[in-house]
Computed example of a mutant assay.
Amino acid sequence: MRLSIIAVIVILNLCFQSVNAQSEQIITEDFKPSSLNQPEKIFPQVNSQRRVRASISATNASKVQLDIGGVKYDMLKDRNGVWTGESNPQDEGFHYYQLNIDGASVPDPGSLYFYGAGRWGSGIEIPSTDQDFFALKDVPHGLVSENIYFSKLTNSFRRCFVYTPDGYSENLKTRYPVLYLQHGSFEDETGWSSQGKANLILDNLIASKNAVPMIIVMDNGYAFKSENKEVKDPSKQRESIFEDVLIKEVVPMIDAKFRTIAKREGRAIAGLSMGANQTMRIMMNHLDTFSYYGGFSGTANYPSSDAIDVSSFLNGKYKGGNALNKQIKLFWLGLGTKEPAPFPKSVGAFRNMLEQQGIKYQYYESPETAHEWLTWRRCLKEFASKLFK
């Protein structure tokens, strides 16, 4: 009799577990159009569970999937040939995504397009609990301008986007410090002002007097020496000359065209991921040009290593912490708490090296974010609030 009672209890527990598991899969029907939809488009949508729902008309397709966060979700077709499907809950913040129609990955025609992953594609915003700091608010706004220039080093036309704070056009005698801010791999100079909301972050910081009014320059980190097409070897990787382009062309151009504080004390440089790697090398090679550094989700020791040989790393430029502490006004690092490998290990090894050399730095962790734009927006907010003070 006792065994029978125990068996019944076990069966009931299993049933309750099954019911709970099913209830976790129940989709809350409070979907709303994404804030990044094209005008008048109803889809894609996001609900309170942070699920993404996409929909597309593809009458002749045999299989359609929603591809987001590295996972593909099957969508279902109705009698009118409209496919609809949902994702699992996503992390807060901005995410690239696409639709896969019979094996072909395409942008969702309902969303705005952003340059990331080496292509123009769809993006969606999962509302975050702290989104107020990058929200479009009723505060004085600066201007983001497109600046086209011819680069003799690359023998090509290039462009950078420049943020000037509110009042720049009126206060004609005021000069401003400059932050050179770089994007990540497979992104471009549009990233920080579109996905990154850099201008809105600075507008809000400046309006609340939590940041000094500054200029921000956002250039394309992909720059290569012009090659003779007749002798070009497609098997060889092209050598980046972005450092030369920035130092020899962009910085002088910005100082000539804008009212800058044209000395090292008036310049900062920062970047995310690939941009963190690039800007760290540029900073250490040109301490006569920059005095503030910010590395978001990356350092120059990529791929990661368990330990860094300070004598050989960047040609020994981190030897002698006391001298660097006098030259660098702020050395700042930021990382998301959910960053994938190799970033935590890489940044951790770099921090250990800094501490062994007695180099002062500040470190910030973005809670519950990975290698994504919400991490970098938060990093910019924290970093910019400490600049030029």
Rank of each mutant, 00 (worst) to 15 (best):
Gln98Thr: 03
Cys15Val: 15
His95Pro: 00
Asn47Leu: 01
Ala58Asn: 08
Phe94Glu: 00
Val19Tyr: 11
Tyr115Thr: 00
Val106Gly: 09
Gln49Asp: 04
Arg53Asp: 02
Gln45Trp: 07
Leu76Pro: 00
Tyr115Leu: 02
Ser23Tyr: 07
Lys41Leu: 14
Ala58Gln: 11
Asp30Cys: 13
Asp132Pro: 01
Ile26Val: 15
Thr129Cys: 07
Asn60Thr: 12
Gly121Pro: 04
Gln98Lys: 02
Ser105Ala: 15
Asn100Gln: 10
Tyr115Met: 04
Thr84Ser: 13
Ala54Trp: 01
Ser48Ile: 10
Ser23Cys: 11
Lys63Leu: 11
Ser128Phe: 09
Arg79Phe: 12
Ile126Phe: 08
Lys41Asp: 13
Gly70Ile: 12
Pro89Ser: 01
Gln22Asp: 13
Val52Lys: 01
Ile27Thr: 02
Ser62Arg: 14
Ser87Glu: 04
Ile126Glu: 08
Leu112Arg: 04
Ser55Lys: 01
Asp102Cys: 15
Ser18Leu: 09
Val52Ile: 05
Asp132Arg: 05
Pro107Arg: 00
Gly118Asn: 07
Thr28Tyr: 06
Ser55Pro: 02
Leu99Pro: 08
Gly69Thr: 06
Leu99Asp: 07
Arg79Trp: 09
Thr28Gln: 09
Ser23Met: 13
Ile56Val: 15
Lys63Ile: 13
Met75Trp: 01
Gln38Ile: 14
Ser18Pro: 02
Ile42Asp: 07
Ile27His: 01
Asn80Val: 11
Gly70Val: 10
Gln38Tyr: 08
Ser18His: 05
Asn13Val: 15
Asn60Ser: 12
Asn100His: 04
Pro127Thr: 11
Ala117Thr: 08
Asp78Arg: 08
Glu86Val: 00
Asn37Trp: 09
Pro109Phe: 07
Arg50Asn: 15
Ile124Tyr: 02
Ile27Ala: 03
Tyr73Trp: 05
Val52Asn: 02
Asp91Cys: 02
Gly93Asn: 11
Tyr113Val: 08
Asp30Glu: 10
Arg50Thr: 15
Ile42Gly: 05
Asp102Phe: 15
Ile56Gly: 03
Val106Phe: 09
Asp102Leu: 14
